[in-house]
Amino acid sequence: MSLPADFLFNQANLQDYVDCPRRFQLRHLLQLAWPAVAAEPADEYEAQVQDGEAFHRLVHQHVLGIIAAETPILPEAGPLADWWRAYLASPPADLPAMLLPEVTLSAPLAGYRLIAKYDLIAIEPDRRAIIVDWKTSARRPRPGWLSERMQTRVYRYLLVRAGTDLFPGLQPAQVEMIYWFANYPDQPERLPYDATQFEADGRLLTELVVEIAGRNEPIFPLTDDVTRCRFCTYRSLCGRGITAGDLDEADDQAAVPEEAAPDWTAGFDFEQIGEIVF
């Protein structure tokens, strides 16, 4: 199956391709449902994902002024309450005042479209634009690891390419990305940007898209690093394992997906039932 003309590239599917072309093919190209457990304990993994989503929503509401710091909608204890206290006590330092939460940007790239959804973009007009990404994972990655991730490359590159609505004439050197860790609020990772890196990211992303679009083999290559397969739901299809990896064993190399699997049944579907289909 060739790449559909309306395919959208994003940091997650590009990272999948870099990690394992076969996973990209199964998950994003063939969109093959393979609902094995991603990580064990499954209920705890699900709770982590849900708490992460709830934290993102809280910060979104706070930035928009919908809730105050002393909001009654928080649970009294648990990670969400801890993260919230950490966010209030040690937010990313030195952010410009103009805060734009939940911004989506996209731009053409090698005959397709590249898209990214930002947690927060903070702008000081004519001076700088800061990308903030909230991380609620249990572990803090080792320094330097994040700079190679597709998220870092795509987010900074795309802000320069497509952020002119927000910041006319934005230059790479005016961009910085901050990963803020809810469990390690005093250890954010700050990643500045420059024209050289912008050029390199543009080349890399273009090459990746061209490479993916040009593939026509029935089975894309499997990753050589089988440790990644522990947290991949397709492990049984590829004959690379039976049980899911343990959350405690996840490391930088074999990262647990931060997002839940695509929710293919979300929302109302007109075709679902004849009687009422509101």
Partner: peptide, 18 residues
């Protein structure tokens, strides 16, 4: 979604229910 659409933010396409 077409590659020729200009770069920029996202147009919201929704139903009122959504």
């Amino acid at each position: 979604r077409h590659p020729t659409a200009p770069p920029g933010g996202e147009v919201t396409v929704a139903t009122l229910g959504g």
